[in-house]
Design a protein around this nucleic acid. Sequence first.
DNA 1: ATGCGTATTATGTCTGCACATATTATTCTG
DNA 2: CAGAATAATATGTGCAGACATAATACGCAT
Lengths: 231, 231
Amino acid sequence: MTKGIRNWQAVQQEVLRRINAREWPPGALIPNEADLATEFGCARATVNRALRAVAEAGLLDRKRRAGTRVALQPVARATLSIAVIRQEVEDKGARYDHRLLERKLARPPATVSRALKTGAAALLHVRALHFADDVPYALEDRWINPAGAAGALDQPFDTTSANEWLLEHAPYTGGDIALSAHSTTAAEAQELGCAEGAALFALTRNTWNGDTAVTRVRLLFAHGYAMQADL
Amino acid sequence: MTKGIRNWQAVQQEVLRRINAREWPPGALIPNEADLATEFGCARATVNRALRAVAEAGLLDRKRRAGTRVALQPVARATLSIAVIRQEVEDKGARYDHRLLERKLARPPATVSRALKTGAAALLHVRALHFADDVPYALEDRWINPAGAAGALDQPFDTTSANEWLLEHAPYTGGDIALSAHSTTAAEAQELGCAEGAALFALTRNTWNGDTAVTRVRLLFAHGYAMQADL
DNA sequence: ATGCGTATTATGTCTGCACATATTATTCTG
DNA sequence: CAGAATAATATGTGCAGACATAATACGCAT
């Protein structure tokens, strides 16, 4: 009988240890909450809290009545935090700056209107360049749905970047992100100051507020950029 | 006085609604748990559960004594699930296959030994190609630390890929991931069957079991690959 | 005014209990 | 024997109360 495991973090740690040490091998059914509670000498709610946390981390599969078993394939969930670009730059100790390249109301290409489900409606197209210590850091190509971001049409986006303004003024409920590699075009090469054909890291994000699209943005990062995440 | 909000999910939804509707604007201090509990007509523990969930999602900042406030910059946390390659391929409805290209004990380049902190020790170097419907899907370049993955030296990795074997037999406690864009070299182009210089999506991952390195792997995905995540 | 100790307060967590709910096992019935 | 009704069981959640802990506010002494 293990003792002194009375808070949920300690329980979690012990559970993780047993999984790691293969005391509870992958696929195995582990004791139920009540039994673990008596073993650890704590309340069932405490065990529940711990097991829930481990399950959220993907190392346990829980089902009512069926019990809790160790995940066969612990899906490595990396939580990459996509911050505001200004912050990302400043966190690296560099001076942030940005320049508006273009801002106009226009009919988006089919890719965009299809992704945002905005039909033939005109959207606000904003292009901007972000700098870190005066070196191009990322090229932003954004389409804003005026119907999903009230007040956007009145914003110049010259001093405050669209990136930051939207975060502050346009709430969203969900979205999706795609990460990919992109081969630099001639125009992009000139704006970002890199060689044509260079491999660049691209991030495309759509955000929604309920059923209405808010914005779609593609960020093209300067050469050498790597996105970090922890397991 | 709102009523009928008695379970934590309903509380969470109401909290999200208020944040979204700017009833609680960014940066604002929201009522404390006890007050919300009386307002909603539920126990404080229920409110706590809900607020904790919202805080974990990054929309609230909580501090003892200081209270709970709406996050100024809701850090968009995208949880990308990095599954086993076989599964990723099969989930797309394609037939998975893989081929071992190389397997030998060798001294790793400085980049690797530095990242894994293995000094001058020899590591197991495994290179393999993953296919989806017989088309190259990803090129795997892996260094395995025998000290961190017991039994790895006895594995041929021809029928079972190192990817899968390690997941099953080498537990890990943490790691880090870097995502980047890579310009294809001539050798890689030949193996992946794409043009030299093409922009490819690369994933480099180090995993650890406590303080000892387990493995470092770089996956180079075929042209056109995009990694998806949700917000 | 300045610095330090103390009181206050909001969140964090544990407990013991109860009931809800999903899922599996079992039994009953035609 | 098939299929439906029913029981059993593990997790999910709610509640009230208690104490722990961190961070702030306040007041006191210097």
